[in-house]
Design a binder for these strands. Structure first.
Length: 476
RNA sequence: GUCCCGUUCGUCUAGAGGCCCAGGACAGUGCCCUCUCACGGCACCAACAGGGUUUCGAAUCCCCUACGGGACGCCA
């Protein structure tokens, strides 16, 4: 039997990072076993479900490269089938009409809570004849749950979990308006979709016991269940806005690579010895659901950032150049052209060594898309002393004689420094300021080479010329 | 409140009775490399929630307590 897993989010908002991990585990599990990974949109709550959210979920999964094997199933299109199963249950005597009104039940629940009692539906219509039904009330359909013994769940992550059946009341499977309830439709859909492994957040653990009752009542084979722990914020509380990014596409916006996010999320609650860096192929090969921990784990943005840096360094230079160009295109202060793309591509091996996000990478490449005179950071301006400016004119002469390859630039700079009795840093820092407007950049030789002869010399001249009047009487 | 689950360095984790006076990674600190910043290298800091059992021996088995989390809808 082929393994079939599914990710079943409700489209009520952007895809949360916990959902991403659930999707990832489902994906990895099915791939590991050569099975199928499916998507089901649980949009039966018409009030809260939106098309925008649905599209957001699909975009998120696409970005993360969690490919589905079949078109998405929309639960809202299956409510007829859910009702049909409910009627089957009714006909088989495994379910019954309940004529309690929502108001009546809500009041009871409220009262029980006020008295600090546990409230459960008492099954008052379970064995009553429908002829006793009060007039004018359209009934809901409730499942006849087992009332004795206990239900045991052999969870792939949580182990053996038992609940006394007395804890479970007769849940509603079909509302009085004919629409299905979650715990019912999930079972019908999972069955019809031939799902073999249900991997989901452990907030669903207690639902499972109710769902098992439906499987039993229908005589359907049960899938295996795996309830994975939730992700919390740094303070151990539920992940929320103040903890930082929490939605998949937010991470994309903040410059994270999908493979870094996947690697991070996979290692959260799962491990394979001391292994930290796990690419997609290896993840598929190594992933097993029984290696997933039971306890909730906390989101550590610092570690994700570190991982992102590692993935950026490993990433293909052309791809990173495209990403950077895409981001820089939105900046009104820059002028992009093919020569800029070439410069960024040329310097990319050095740039990516220094960035932890695509945002940082883009910022660090921005100077390549400017034209002289450059805006100067205060520290860079300070590096351009009168003395330095004079030195720049001289070094420009030497540089002009090179072929602007990295080795020849390096050789020229070292020779110049030695001849002038300067340390390399005393030459490189003013040059860096002149070329980038900053005190931080890749190696000065690579920076010069990427910028090219013409642009480099123009920037040096611009920087050296602006303080021409300096005669040694400069203040501060 | 009831039911269920969990608890190893700040964080993610290794650990399936002796290999552990607890290992790795991130973060932090210091040093080295060095034209800046990174990268890289080296080192330091730092944990078995508490108590009680079993055992020759427990982070590992069992029990209790504390703390944390989840679920208790005609929501999903």
């Amino acid at each position: 039997m082929t393994v079939r897993t599914r990710f079943a989010p409700s489209p009520t908002g952007p895809l949360h990072i916990g959902g991403v991990r659930t999707a990832l585990f489902n994906y990895l599990y099915s791939r590991h076993h050569g099975g199928d990974f499916l998507l089901r949109i649980e949009d039966t709550d018409r009030e809260r479900s939106t098309d925008v959210a649905t599209q957001g979920i699909i975009d998120s999964l696409d970005w993360l490269d969690l490919a589905r094997d079949e078109p998405p199933v929309f639960q809202s299109q299956r409510i007829g089938r859910h009702a049909e199963v409910a009627r089957e249950l009714l006909a088989a005597g495994r379910a019954y009409y309940c004529y309690c009104t929502p108001e009546e039940l809500a009041a009871e629940r409220e009262q029980a809570r006020a008295e600090k009692r546990v409230w459960r539906y008492d099954g008052r219509w379970r064995d009553r004849d429908p002829s006793e039904a009060p007039p004018g009330v359209t009934p809901a359909i409730r499942l006849k749950s087992e009332r004795e013994g206990e239900t045991t769940l052999e969870d792939l992550v949580q182990g053996t979990v038992r609940v006394a059946n007395i804890e479970l009341d007769d849940m509603i499977i079909l509302r009085s308006d004919g629409s299905p309830m979650y715990n019912h439709s999930v079972v019908v859909d999972d069955h019809d979709m031939a799902i073999t492994h249900v991997i989901r957040g452990d907030d669903h653990l207690t639902n499972t016991f109710r769902q098992i009752q439906v499987y039993k009542a229908m005589g359907w084979p049960m899938p295996r269940f795996a309830h994975i722990p939730l992700i919390h914020g740094a303070d151990g509380a539920k992940l929320s806005k103040r903890h930082g990014a929490q939605f998949a596409l937010e991470f994309r916006e903040q410059g994270f690579l999908p493979e870094a996010l996947c690697n991070y999320l996979m290692r959260l609650g799962w491990s394979h010895g001391d292994l930290e860096i796990v690419g997609r192929e290896e993840a598929i090969r190594l992933f097993d659901i029984i290696d997933v921990n039971r306890g909730a784990s906390r989101m550590d943005y610092a570690k994700l950032l570190n991982l992102n840096g590692i993935y950026i360094r490993q990433a293909d230079d052309d791809r990173l150049t495209r990403d950077v160009l895409h981001r820089l295109a939105h900046r009104p202060d820059l002028a992009l052209g093919s020569h800029v793309a070439a410069r960024i591509r040329a310097l990319m091996p050095a740039l990516k060594e220094r960035a932890k996000t695509i945002v940082e990478l883009s910022d660090s490449a921005a100077f390549l898309a400017r034209t002289a005179p450059l805006p100067m950071e205060p520290k860079a301006a300070a590096a351009l002393t009168a003395e330095a400016k004079l030195m720049l004119r001289d070094v420009a002469t030497d540089l002009a004689l090179t072929d602007f390859s990295v080795p020849s630039i390096d050789a020229a700079l070292r020779a110049f420094a030695e001849r002038s009795g300067l340390k390399l840093g005393q030459v490189a820092q003013p040059l860096r300021a002149a070329l980038t407007g900053s005190t931080v950049s890749p190696g000065i030789d690579a920076t010069l080479s990427a910028l090219g002869r013409e642009e480099s010399l123009a920037r040096i001249v611009a920087a050296a010329g602006s303080g021409q009047s300096a005669t040694g009487a400069t203040s501060d």
